[in-house]
Structures are given as C-alpha cells and as structure tokens.
Simulated assay, not measured.
Amino acid sequence: MGRNPTKTQKKAAFDAWGGTCQHCHLPVKRGDEVYHHIRRRISGQHEPANLLLYHTSCHDQHHGVRRSLSAGTNRADT
C-alpha cells in the first residue's frame, strides 16, 4: 500500500465529494486541492470515503499551520 494516492484515486475522491471542500463546503478548483486521509495505514486508505477533499488553505487551517503543508512547512500556531 503506497503512502500517497495515485492520480486515479485523487480523481475518484474529487468526483465522490462533488468537487466540494469538506472544510468550507465551497467548490474546489483543480490545482488548489489537497487530499487529506482520515486514517492512514489501513486497507483502502486511498478510497474516497477516507480521502477528504480540501482547498490548500482549508487543509492548512485544519492542521493549524501558518504556512502551507504542501510547501513543506509544518510550523503549528502557538
């Protein structure tokens, strides 16, 4: 089981969530999406039910970071 979802798995999650951010419930534009695992290291970890769709900024808010996790920074707000 790979750590990251494939393009096919990401597309399936995007379609399953109707292109809607699961944090703010607004439409997500392709290229501004992040896929968040509810649980890791489980069978089916890349299935749409376990792979939430977020805007990049909403995903960062979810994790309480000041800078994008996608950019490699994981400083938490204190």
Rank of each mutant, 00 (worst) to 15 (best):
G2D: 12
T6H: 07
T6I: 10
K7S: 11
K7C: 10
K7Q: 13
K7P: 11
K7V: 14
T8V: 15
T8K: 13
Q9C: 12
Q9A: 04
K10F: 09
K11P: 00
D15G: 07
D15E: 10
D15V: 10
D15M: 15
W17N: 00
G18W: 13
G19W: 15
C21E: 06
Q22P: 07
H23Q: 05
C24H: 00
C24V: 02
C24P: 02
C24K: 06
H25P: 00
H25F: 11
H25D: 11
L26N: 05
V28W: 14
R30N: 10
R30W: 15
G31H: 14
D32G: 06
E33V: 03
E33N: 12
E33T: 08
V34S: 02
H37Q: 08
R40H: 11
I42V: 10
I42P: 05
S43Y: 15
G44I: 03
G44T: 04
H46N: 11
H46G: 04
E47M: 07
P48N: 05
A49V: 14
A49Y: 09
N50H: 13
N50R: 04
N50Y: 08
L51K: 04
L51W: 09
L53D: 01
L53W: 06
H55Q: 03
H55S: 07
H55Y: 02
T56A: 05
S57Y: 14
S57G: 08
C58G: 01
C58Y: 05
C58N: 00
C58K: 00
H59I: 04
D60S: 07
H62G: 09
H62I: 06
H62M: 14
H63W: 02
V65D: 05
V65C: 01
R66C: 03
R67F: 14
R67G: 02
R67Q: 11
R67V: 09
S68Y: 09
A71N: 10
A71T: 02
G72L: 02
N74M: 10
A76G: 13
A76P: 08
A76K: 13
D77L: 10
T78R: 07
T78N: 07
